[in-house]
Amino acid sequence: METPFDQDLIAARRRRAVAADDRHATFLADLAAQELAERLTVVERNFDVAVELHGAIGSTSQLALATGKVGSIMRVELPGGYLAGAGSVMEAPLEELPLEPASVNLVISPLALHLSNDTPGVFIQIRRALKPDGLFLAAIPGAGTLQELRDVLLATEVELTGGASPRVVPFADVRDVGGLLQRAGFALPVVDAESYIVRYDSLFPLMRDLRAMGMTNPLKDRSRKPLSRSFFLRAAEIYAERYSDPDGRIRATFSIIYASGWAPHESQQKPLKPGSAKARLADALKVDEIKLEK
């Protein structure tokens, strides 16, 4: 199995990020937590036992409890890579879900699944951990995230060295995530995406935020050669040339895929079998039906 991400490095950067506790850089996690809580609010169900997967700062657990839809919540976190907050904590690696089969009613995953080397396997573990008719909610950084930074770093490296190495992680698109839900056996899957534009004075505060989020490059195939100050100065110039607004500030795109799926249960709606309709579409539309030959 291909393993593009360095899990030890991901854990180390998560620990460094939470140790710094830069609340200015939690805006993306807070956005995802608020959106997940709003989506939970409109579900006509209550969930006795919920789990948050690798949220790190605990805002998702806090807002989920505030909806009144959740009885109790437990957090699964990387060892040492989280802040104290709502809910008890169980430590586990990113790709292992330490839950018994059919043991919880709700699993919420904010902004972590894109870093797994076995995302299909994690989805299957989540589905198995859910009780029948249990709900899975996830926020996953998707295609388009940091597209400007990807372009700028590539252009800078080609210009200065004549080559390039991967410096921004690949992100899944909406169709990929929908396919993963179906492959894992979730019923009634729903997937959509929201894009958020964040503006910065220059490339450098953007890079500081990414470090504070623990979102810097964790690819195994990344270049180990340190980048010079002149590299980043040139990258900042290219960024400003290509992606600045009239006031001189630059744009950074963060695209988040929101996904939901249910553990199968006999009470859930089922699609009708082909040919089982009791009324014709032509009658409903009050038009004449035109039959094709053969």
Rank of each mutant, 00 (worst) to 15 (best):
D8G: 15
D8W: 11
D8P: 05
L9F: 12
L9H: 11
L9G: 08
I10E: 00
A11Y: 08
A12R: 11
A12C: 12
R13T: 09
R13S: 07
R13M: 10
R14V: 11
R14P: 10
R15M: 06
R15E: 03
R15G: 08
R15K: 11
R15D: 05
R16Y: 09
A17K: 09
A17D: 03
V18K: 00
V18F: 01
V18L: 05
V18W: 04
A19F: 04
A20L: 11
A20Y: 08
A20P: 09
A20H: 15
A20Q: 14
A20I: 10
D21C: 13
D21Q: 02
D21E: 01
D22H: 06
D22V: 05
D22M: 03
R23A: 14
H24E: 13
A25R: 07
A25G: 09
T26A: 00
T26Q: 04
T26I: 00
T26L: 00
F27P: 00
F27N: 00
F27Q: 00
L28V: 13
A29W: 03
A29P: 09
D30N: 07
D30E: 10
L31W: 10
L31P: 07
L31A: 14
A32E: 02
A32H: 00
A33Q: 03
A33V: 02
A33N: 11
Q34D: 14
Q34I: 02
Q34G: 13
E35M: 14
E35W: 03
E35I: 13
L36C: 12
L36Y: 13
A37V: 06
A37F: 05
A37R: 06
E38I: 05
R39L: 12
R39I: 08
R39P: 13
L40W: 12
L40F: 10
T41E: 05
T41C: 14
T41M: 10
T41I: 05
T41Y: 09
V43N: 04
E44L: 12
E44N: 11
R45Q: 15
R45G: 07
R45K: 15
R45I: 08
N46H: 14
N46A: 15
F47M: 12
F47E: 04
F47N: 13
D48F: 15
V49W: 07
V49N: 11
V49F: 11
A50Y: 03
A50T: 08
A50L: 02
A50P: 06
V51Y: 03
V51C: 10
V51M: 08
V51S: 01
L53R: 06
L53M: 12
L53W: 04
L53I: 10
L53Y: 11
H54S: 14
H54R: 12
H54Q: 10
G55R: 01
G55N: 02
A56W: 02
A56N: 09
A56I: 03
I57A: 01
G58F: 14
G58S: 13
S59P: 01
S59V: 03
S59H: 04
S59L: 06
T60I: 00
T60N: 05
S61W: 04
S61A: 15
S61G: 15
Q62M: 02
L63P: 05
A64R: 09
L65R: 12
A66T: 02
A66W: 06
A66F: 06
T67Q: 03
T67D: 09
T67F: 08
T67P: 04
